[in-house]
Amino acid sequence: MNQEFFMYRGYPLVRKGNEIYYGYMSEPFVVMMQIVHQQEVNGLKVADKIRVYQIATKEPDPVKAITKTSDRPNLYEAVDLANVWLKRAEKDAAAK
């Protein structure tokens, strides 16, 4: 089944409920963003607390798979951080 995903800065961005996944599952790391809290602004729900996790895709133990965490106050900052983490992981993998 061919699916087209929304791409942001070269990586797929997929949302399921209050979780947003950023990156390719075939790469060493992917970032999961969990919407922890939302507030209503002009009739729209806007995320105002997002927890960001960098996850090693090859680690079978879900607890050990989490390599970095951070909290961000909005989606823009969360995705921006996720992009930096993935770019650094890509750069580190290329250096090895």
Rank of each mutant, 00 (worst) to 15 (best):
F6I: 12
I35A: 07
D48T: 03
A93H: 15
Y8W: 15
Y11R: 07
V41F: 09
M7E: 14
A89R: 05
P73M: 01
L75P: 01
T57K: 04
A78E: 00
L75Q: 07
E77W: 00
G17E: 10
K49E: 06
N74S: 06
A93K: 15
M25H: 12
I35R: 05
A47L: 06
V14Q: 11
K68Q: 10
V52F: 05
E19M: 14
A89S: 11
T67A: 07
M25R: 12
E27Q: 13
D61W: 08
G17S: 10
A65E: 06
V14K: 10
T69H: 04
H37N: 11
V14Y: 08
F5K: 13
Y22R: 02
P73N: 00
N18M: 15
E4V: 14
E40Q: 13
A65D: 04
L86E: 01
A56E: 15
I50H: 06
V30L: 10
I20P: 05
Y24T: 04
K16G: 13
V52S: 02
G10M: 09
R9C: 09
A89P: 01
W85A: 06
L75D: 01
Y8H: 11
D80M: 07
M25G: 14
E40W: 09
A93D: 15
A95W: 10
Y76F: 13
R88P: 01
T57N: 09
V63M: 10
A94G: 06
D92C: 06
D80Q: 03
K64Q: 08
P73S: 01
I35C: 07
D61G: 07
N18G: 13
N42Y: 09
D61I: 07
F29W: 06
V30K: 09
G43W: 12
E59L: 03
T67G: 06
M33Y: 02
A95M: 14
E40I: 11
V31N: 05
P28R: 08
K58F: 14
E59Y: 04
P73D: 01
V14D: 10
E27S: 10
E4L: 09
Q38W: 07
D71F: 03
N42I: 09
N42A: 15
S70H: 03
A95L: 12
A82E: 00
D80T: 07
Y8N: 11
M25C: 09
F29G: 00
Y24C: 09
Y22S: 00
Y22L: 02
A93L: 15
M33T: 00
K45Q: 15
A65W: 07
N18Q: 15
M32W: 05
G43E: 05
A47E: 04
M1H: 12
K96F: 12
Q39P: 00
T69A: 02
Y24I: 06
V31W: 11
A82H: 02
N18I: 08
A47Q: 01
A94L: 11
V63K: 14
V31D: 09
N18S: 15
V52Y: 01
F29T: 05
I35T: 05
M7V: 14
R72T: 00
K45R: 13
P73L: 03
K58E: 11
A65L: 03
P28T: 05
M1K: 10
A82V: 03
K96G: 13
K91H: 13
E40A: 11
L81F: 05
R15C: 12
V36N: 07
V14H: 12
V31I: 08
S26A: 13
M33D: 00
P12Y: 11
M1Q: 11
D61E: 08
M33K: 01
Q38C: 11
L81I: 00
V31G: 04
